[in-house]
């Protein structure tokens, strides 16, 4: 049987329809991956849950919350944000796997919208992030974490967390296309972990040596964590530096800045992949 393809759309709307359809096909593909490998999803979840238990109960007694308050309430927003950060690894692995197996080349040799691969990946990862967050919120509630400022602020806090994940998607796609080898992701992990810990996630930068505290405060993760603590009404460490006082603003600015840098880089890298 000979298949006659639909003609290429000439109009802008026609092309947009194709871009949406192709992006959706790629999204469904990633969702199908999780359905095929549910264990993968559980493993992603295990890690923050383990950390929550470890820090919440095992080390929790010896941790002092700046300004007083329940350590577990202090901890959870940090864990939410850290999990968003660590999502960069799964984005990167997925992208690097496709690039190394020639799947990316096949996509690029097909008449699909060139935005679709990148956009589909982003949508799928956002869906994943939302699911992970919902489960983590549940775990938080189970160990005594609460949001205290009403549903509107809590929703805003979730929005900030997803915004952070959104920014890291583009970093993940860019790095995945650069390394093109899922094994090299290990190297990135070595960098990502300190970013997760060198922040106000588990303790306050005030307790760190000066220069380290400064790095921790300017870590984009810290702004999101501080802002979500504020919005959830959880105990936090105010700090009196400019960056700490503008946490809410910076929790929006940082991700937008990262996206503005890495989204074009990722798209350009995808279009020009010529290795």
């Amino acid at each position: 049987m000979t298949i006659i393809p639909a003609a290429m759309p000439r109009t802008f709307v026609g092309r947009l329809r194709w871009a949406v359809a192709d992006g959706w096909t790629i999204t469904l593909r990633s969702l199908a991956h999780w359905k095929q490998q549910p264990a993968q999803f559980l493993i992603t979840l295990m890690f923050p849950i383990m950390i929550a238990l470890l820090f919440g109960y095992l080390f929790g007694g010896s941790m002092v919350v700046p300004g007083g308050g329940n350590y577990r309430e202090f901890l959870m927003p940090g864990l939410f944000a850290m999990t968003m950060l660590f999502g960069v690894e799964s984005t990167m692995i997925a992208v690097a796997t496709d690039a190394s197996r020639g799947v990316t080349d096949r996509f690029r040799s097909m008449p699909m919208a060139s935005s679709a691969v990148v956009v589909g990946r982003a949508i799928a990862d956002m869906v994943d992030a939302l699911l992970v967050l919902v489960v983590l919120l549940g775990c938080g509630v189970a160990i005594g974490w609460r949001w205290r400022e009403g549903i509107g602020d809590a929703a805003l806090a979730l929005g900030l967390l997803l915004l952070l994940r959104f920014a890291f998607i583009w970093i993940g796609i860019y790095l995945g296309l650069v390394v093109r080898n899922p094994e090299s992701v290990m190297v990135v992990q070595i960098v990502v972990w300190p970013i997760g810990f060198l922040a106000n996630t588990f303790s306050s930068p005030a307790g760190m040596p000066d220069w380290l505290g400064m790095v921790a405060e300017w870590n984009p993760l810290s702004s999101t964590v501080a802002a979500t603590r504020q919005l959830f009404g959880n105990p936090g460490w105010g700090g009196d530096s400019w960056i700490a006082e503008h946490a809410l603003l910076m929790a929006v600015v940082w991700p937008l800045l990262l996206t503005a840098v890495f989204l074009p880089l990722a798209v350009r890298r995808y279009r020009r992949l010529s290795l």
């Binding site: 192709d22 095929q36 197996r101 799947v103 080349d105 040799s109 097909m110 679709a116």
Partner: peptide, 27 residues
Amino acid sequence: LVGQYAAVDEVLSGRQNLVMFGRLYHL
């Protein structure tokens, strides 16, 4: 295009692969 490596999605089934590529050819 058939490249030097089998460029198919390892996680999906054979059928899922072909349907996905067919959709991307706008069938």
